[in-house]
Simulated assay, not measured.
Amino acid sequence: MVTICFQSPSKPIHNIQPKSKLSSQPPYKSQSLVIVTEPEPVFTSVKTFAPATVANLGPGFDFLGCAVDGLGDHVTLHVDPTVRNGEISISEITGTTTKLSFDPHRNCAGIAAMATMKMLGIKSVGVSLALHKGLPLGSGLGSSAASAAAAAVAVNELFGGKLGNDELVLAGLKSEAKVSGFHADNIAPAIMGGFVLIRSYEPLDLKPLRFPLEKDLFFVLVSPDFEAPTKKMRAALAKEIPMAHHVWNSSQAAVLVAAVLEVEPKRAPLIPGMEAVKRAALEAGAFGCTISGVGPTAVAVIDTAEKGFEIGEKMVEAFLKVGNLKSIASVKKLDKIGARLIKSM
């Protein structure tokens, strides 16, 4: 579909349909004619995947996160003539949870998909979305971000992949802002893969931290049978810090160590046994151990899968012995790809 716009440096853009009388009689001479082409679907259906993420990584509160291979959400999107043009219908929700809204304005996948359609200027096509949750809610593994990332990438791929990663992250942030807060440390790595540093939010400035291709990094993820709501866990943090702490924190090369000491202990007591789990992981040889996102999943880092399974066993034992919580351990590699198209028709 083609939309004709008359544009002037001193006046707003007026969107005018091709058959409008104004199209042949510009309202003022200084205008220039701009042709905006709405992208058409290049597929009738696409299926995408977006990985789980580990945000914060201890000290990187709201500005550092990474993607984890093998865990995540799927979105299937198809052109649907029964859906009103320019809109989205959520047709199905399956997987680890089905207790999510089918209203696209209240569903993280729906919000991100609509934001992406708006960026692309889609007005003459309606689409239907099916969400398969591979991540439980309140897990600390970027559940909402995975859904948003998969949805944003699905819309973009359906219409020819016109948008870049930065734009897709902005679309995902529309969703994150409504369901978990305006922070990109989950949505950015979910879309881009690997480690991503958020240098600023206004404007959004993302810096991928490329992990060496010849090396592997493994995450030992231990998820206890315990829900940690994002709002509750974020509420445990101080709203303000003294100016002296801010200056010191910004000027020191050891800022990350300082942040670990100030942020993590405020959340750890909210997760039964977390401190003992961290000790067990470190004693078993982990490079480090912390809370994934807001929790309750604990994450330890190591360089071999074999050692990772040993560390996971010790962490599970600590959760049960000290926190009286049953938990499940898994060992996953760093996901260096991020959200991607896995099927198209």
Score class of each variant (00 low, 15 high):
residue 255 V to N: 15
residue 139 S to Y: 03
residue 225 D to P: 05
residue 302 I to L: 08
residue 179 V to I: 12
residue 231 K to D: 11
residue 279 R to H: 09
residue 42 V to L: 13
residue 232 K to W: 01
residue 50 A to F: 00
residue 72 G to I: 04
residue 110 G to E: 08
residue 114 M to P: 01
residue 326 K to L: 13
residue 33 L to A: 06
residue 22 L to F: 06
residue 237 L to C: 10
residue 336 K to Q: 14
residue 158 L to W: 01
residue 227 E to S: 11
residue 156 N to R: 05
residue 183 H to M: 12
residue 11 K to V: 06
residue 233 M to D: 01
residue 282 L to N: 14
residue 290 T to H: 10
residue 101 S to M: 03
residue 62 D to N: 02
residue 203 P to L: 05
residue 196 V to F: 00
residue 88 I to G: 02
residue 277 V to D: 00
residue 46 V to T: 09
residue 328 I to G: 06
residue 251 S to L: 12
residue 167 E to K: 15
residue 4 I to F: 07
residue 72 G to H: 05
residue 7 Q to F: 09
residue 318 A to R: 02
residue 124 S to L: 08
residue 310 E to K: 15
residue 29 K to R: 13
residue 236 A to W: 09
residue 185 D to F: 00
residue 256 L to K: 11
residue 235 A to C: 09
residue 213 L to P: 10
residue 92 E to H: 15
residue 20 S to A: 11
residue 317 E to V: 06
residue 271 I to C: 08
residue 1 M to D: 08
residue 106 R to G: 11
residue 102 F to K: 13
residue 215 K to A: 12
residue 128 S to Y: 05
residue 223 S to R: 12
residue 51 P to V: 07
residue 118 K to D: 12
residue 47 K to F: 05
residue 61 F to P: 00
residue 137 L to T: 12
residue 316 V to Q: 04
residue 216 D to M: 07
residue 7 Q to I: 10
residue 10 S to L: 14
residue 314 K to E: 08
residue 81 P to V: 08
residue 149 A to M: 07
residue 214 E to F: 12
